[in-house]
Amino acid sequence: MAELKTDRYYVETHEWIMIDGDTATVGITDYAQEELGDIVYVEAEPEGEELVKGDIFGSIESVKVASDLYLPVDGEILEFNQELTDQPELINSDAYAAWIIKIKISNQNQIKELMDAEAYQASIE
């Protein structure tokens, strides 16, 4: 059974976003890491890149598959979690602690379009 956190929002492409004022961290859900299996590589677009909601901001690879990562809201990439370069498996051990990117949110209005834990749970059942 995949774990969920109520302190953040979700999108149907299985990313979570935790908002802190006008910045946020983005990662993938516990459900997504379980589906992917052993994660062996994560990469993101460079810092300073300005993207819109739904854009591919990076990719994540398990032994078997490569998968794109989608941005939940418009924003500018502030930072990539460098720990994941050498230890991508951190996402398997705790998908909610192992954030992938930090962003500066450029459209606060989109937050209300995100799913809460309950809605996301319903979407994966």
Partner: peptide
């Protein structure tokens, strides 16, 4: 396709 994980099984 896997039990414990592809890496550990391999």
């Amino acid at each position: 396709v896997q039990y414990s994980g592809i890496k550990s099984e391999t």
